[in-house]
């Protein structure tokens, strides 16, 4: 009678062993960051000075202008990327579903393509494009967002695709059309409200990716959060590590919160 019980207990022990060990592996370097940023380099012992500096907006702007600049640039980039991504993807994907189902595979292929083109390769190919962008639009960091849209394409596509699958766009819009709604009204009042969760998760993922982007910004010599952090690492190790840890924690909070948003809508 106890065979199944012992087996279950053995399985539970294995599960906790595996999860415990990997979590330990994940947390040791994170703890390393925390430990490093709370060291008092002058007198030894512990201090929260690095963290109080980091949350003091005035002081950061004063003493680390590059960091503040990179941070603001990353926020602007995140906003810009999300807006362009949504404007580009939501209408296109809905439209393809409604009127051009034969193009579904083509659009999917293009959207997933960036997964197979390494960012570093994209940078090489984008060099002449960005010469034109700089010429036409100026040197602003925010124009990096045009390339970031490509980077977030696969992730945003998957979220939106899942959202569109969950609602029957075709029937919904046919119903709305039969009641006399224009295409614009169908998009704005029928499709978009029903896609709220998908839009939200696509946006969250995009924000997380943009805030973590380093390759393109670094090689095009634009200053975003990651580049600023990287350069700060050469002069002020502690503060840069603190920024790194804070950004990881922030991204974790965003993703963790997202796991709840998605569920509520489903049930």
């Amino acid at each position: 009678m106890s065979t199944r019980h012992t087996e279950r207990r053995k399985r539970a022990a294995l599960r906790w062993g595996v999860i415990g060990l990997t979590l330990l592996f994940f947390f040791i370097p994170l703890y390393g960051m925390l430990e490093f940023t709370t060291r008092d380099l002058i007198s030894g012992g512990r201090t929260g000075r690095v963290w109080t500096t980091l949350v003091d907006v005035g002081q950061v702007t004063d003493r680390y202008p590059a960091l503040a600049e990179g941070f603001l640039a990353s926020l602007a980039l995140a906003l810009f990327t999300v807006v362009v991504m949504l404007l580009l993807l939501v209408p296109t994907m809905t439209w393809v579903r409604l009127r051009l189902p034969g193009l579904t595979r083509t659009v999917e292929f293009i959207c997933l393509l960036p997964l197979t083109v390494p960012a570093i390769v994209l940078v090489v190919g984008l060099t002449p494009i960005y010469a034109w962008v700089s010429y036409l639009l100026g040197e602003g960091t925010v124009w990096l967002g045009l390339a970031y849209v490509i980077l977030v394409l696969p992730y945003a596509y998957r979220s939106l695709d899942a959202g569109l699958r969950a609602i029957d766009v075709k029937t919904l819009s046919e119903a709305a059309r039969s009641l006399g709604a224009s295409w614009l009204r169908v998009m704005w009042q029928i499709v978009l409200p029903n896609l709220r969760t998908a839009v939200l998760s696509a946006s969250f993922l995009s924000v997380a990716l943009v805030l973590g982007e380093f390759t393109i910004a670094n090689l095009f010599s634009r200053k975003n959060l990651q580049v600023a952090m990287y350069e700060l690492g050469k002069s002020d190790g502690q503060l840069s590590v603190a920024v790194g840890l804070a950004s990881l924690v922030f991204a974790f909070v965003v993703l963790f919160a997202m796991s709840f948003v998605g569920r509520k809508e489903k049930s």
Binding site: L30, L209, L211, G212, V241, G244, L248
Partner: peptide
């Protein structure tokens, strides 16, 4: 998300 922060860690 890691990138640079992981190297720091």
């Amino acid at each position: 998300f890691g990138g640079v922060a992981l190297a720091f860690a």
